[in-house]
């Protein structure tokens, strides 16, 4: 007699149980990433100043090794036709690059950069600092949300 409940649930209610388990997984991966952001001190306004003044290698080393390891893993996954736990073939969508979708990158990029240079925090660090107990990060995050809301209002009229 196979009364093993885990065996039964594996076959029958795969989707519902998998999704709540996977949400717990995203929470864990997020926590891991938050710790990495804080312990690398990439969340620090000082670090970002050092970067934009070209006076230290830290942020460049961090971003380059981050990109390199990600690129390597992605290339290997694509080559092997790796599947995720959900059974999908691992793939990362292309960013749109047709006419009408080209100007947004440098225009939006410059606006983002102006903010990054002032606040010294991009969205990931805002969340991490909020948890760390930096009250002003909550204000920065709220301001970023207002920024998104205003972007949504103006999006039709902005060049993209």
């Amino acid at each position: 007699m196979s009364q093993n409940p885990s065996k039964v649930s594996k076959g029958t209610s795969k989707n519902s149980s998998a999704s709540s388990w996977s949400l717990l997984g995203y929470l864990g991966i997020g926590a891991f990433f938050g710790i990495v952001l804080l312990k690398s001190e990439a969340v620090s306004w000082f670090r970002i100043q050092e970067m934009f003044r070209f006076q230290g290698f830290y942020m460049y080393g961090l971003l380059m090794t981050g990109v390199l390891t990600s690129a390597l893993v992605l290339a290997v996954f694509k080559k092997l036709g790796m599947r995720s736990l959900t059974g999908e073939k691992v793939s990362v969508g292309d960013k749109p690059w047709q006419p009408g979708q080209r100007h947004r990158y440098w225009l939006g990029g410059i606006v983002f950069g102006l903010g990054w240079g002032l606040a010294g925090t991009c969205p990931g660090p805002m969340y991490a600092l909020l948890g760390y107990g930096v009250g002003a990060a909550a204000v920065a995050l709220l301001s970023a949300l207002v920024g998104v809301r205003v972007y949504a209002l103006l999006a039709k009229r902005l060049p993209h």
Binding site: V92, F112, G113, W116, P123, A140, S143, V148
Partner: peptide, 29 residues
């Protein structure tokens, strides 16, 4: 904090990504 944060949010969605989405993931892809 306030203007900087606002521009970060506004710019990130206009550009379709931030340091993670473009800087790490986009470059890696």
């Amino acid at each position: 904090v306030v203007l900087g944060g606002f521009l970060v949010g506004f710019g990130a969605r206009w550009a379709g990504g931030c340091t993670s989405g473009h800087g790490i993931m986009g470059l890696a892809n």
